[in-house]
Design a protein around this nucleic acid. Sequence first.
DNA 1: CTCCGGACTGCTCATTTGAGCGCCCGAATG
DNA 2: CATTCGGGCGCTCAAATGAGCAGTCCGGAG
Lengths: 316, 316
Amino acid sequence: MANEKTAGPAALVLSATVARRYYLEGASKSDIATELGLSRFKVARLLEGARASGIVRIELESRGEINLDLSVRLRAAYGLRHCVVIDCPDDDDDVLRMHLGRAAAELLGEIVESGDVLGLAWGRSLMAMRTFIGPLNHCDVVQLTGALPLPGDASPIELVRDAARASGGQALFYYAPMMLPDAATAQTLRTQPEIARAIARFPDVTKAVVGVGSWEQGQSTVADAVSDDDRREMFELGVRAEVSSIQVDADGRHVETSLSERLVGIGAEQLKAIADVIAIVYGSQKAAAVYAALRSDFVTSAVTHTALASELLERA
Amino acid sequence: MANEKTAGPAALVLSATVARRYYLEGASKSDIATELGLSRFKVARLLEGARASGIVRIELESRGEINLDLSVRLRAAYGLRHCVVIDCPDDDDDVLRMHLGRAAAELLGEIVESGDVLGLAWGRSLMAMRTFIGPLNHCDVVQLTGALPLPGDASPIELVRDAARASGGQALFYYAPMMLPDAATAQTLRTQPEIARAIARFPDVTKAVVGVGSWEQGQSTVADAVSDDDRREMFELGVRAEVSSIQVDADGRHVETSLSERLVGIGAEQLKAIADVIAIVYGSQKAAAVYAALRSDFVTSAVTHTALASELLERA
DNA sequence: CTCCGGACTGCTCATTTGAGCGCCCGAATG
DNA sequence: CATTCGGGCGCTCAAATGAGCAGTCCGGAG
């Protein structure tokens, strides 16, 4: 820990010479020592000092839109399998979803292997993937949830079909709402042939993409779809977020509510059983919910943007 | 040499993870391999790829005013013993000289060892050192040349005295012009007691600081001090630069002219014999002359500024 | 179907590197 | 003046690393 204030210019230049030969030109320490008439130990110490004093700066360069440093740190902080943090403007949710959708589509293209079964939930961020799905290895694609009516947005069916077409696999989709007024109707729907066929494949799903919502009005299409009374009641039960409509508390623990029965889609146990569940998450105001989702056993990977990633890192 | 265009986000993040653990956190490759379930060879290849593709950026950080990267490269390109490149505005020669003077003074403070004999030539850039001379190890200080009248500037005598005071050594200075009208007068002057005493120490000088001038009107106080005819004649003999009044051609070879006889100061052979001769050089328009000086056997070290350093690197 | 070329992987072995230790020199101290 | 202390230096030995090599997988051509 040499005092760098007193290090003269000659010493600095010597350190820099050694650092350049070693780090930039890849010479071995012994060789540098010989060249400069030093012992290799001296060279090692100079390098050590150069790094400690910041003469040598090593940093991770972001590649394209991906902020690699945040990706790596977020991945490590939450023990994620995959993590992609996109550096893009986050003032417009539509633009944001488009960027994240593209990144998620790329990620799928990379990690889906032949023989995988891909599950796709529903949400606006997932829909944004649709246009960007590139060639996929052969895999069947299963619709994980019904849809909620969203004006101007496509249904999960198109997404599942496009993905299946891109992979050459089978598409298991169905027409159904995500949520029904009562358990009985939901149960009846689940017996419909197409729906049953998809549900039967849930245990085979190896990779899935889901959305995450915060359990507040306007922060989750699911939360918005229940009555005010129901939403408040569920909030009091501890519900703070939903992962593909599965409700979790602030620490990511699953919260069973009356809603579970009324859903058409994958259940908590089956979602948990999927080897890799990729969540597309965005919006710093949803940070608490996303924290819960990433902490939960449901989500194993994340695609997000820099602002939210930074926020999540502080909470981790 | 993996095609980075096709490398997906997951691969990028993996590379970045490995790079961060290795370069930023200092983990060993084997450990990283174990953690991530890879072979250490795979890790090595990822790191190699990460560096090749620019994910990992390693660069030399400039410390204070010193541009380390240029210093190192210039030093290597010209085989210099010491080289300090200062990053400072170069539109005002006075300011520039001040910065270079300070750097040179610092360098002296660092490299002068007890028992050295320090020789100081004359020039405006050398004069700028005066205020910045800090404590020096004990050494005698010898005035290497006479001075030319420069309005408003101090004489080399003050510089030599200040340096000697800073080091606690003996000061060998004298009052004499650098150049005389004829050889006979110069010869007479050299026999003056103070001058002879200084000259007698020339062979003992171990470190010296000199200036460099371009052999054109306005680019060298020496060139300006001879008659137009003489200057032109010497130019035709090949003189393109002067190092502490010693004339050299475009490639740094010493050119003997009638001037040599008329000088009071150190001669070519004796200057060449000094172990370390530091040239303070500045002004991109003098690049050709400085090139010659650095290529010559006279100069072994340099203190300069970024613009000139870059220019010199291109010529090297 | 086989065969081939290329990419990728992990092995062995020689080289390089890091950690800890004792030495030496100079400065501060009794 | 002798002593002690601290920092810088280079040594030894074990661990880390790089280079070259052979096995394997995969896709395309014959």
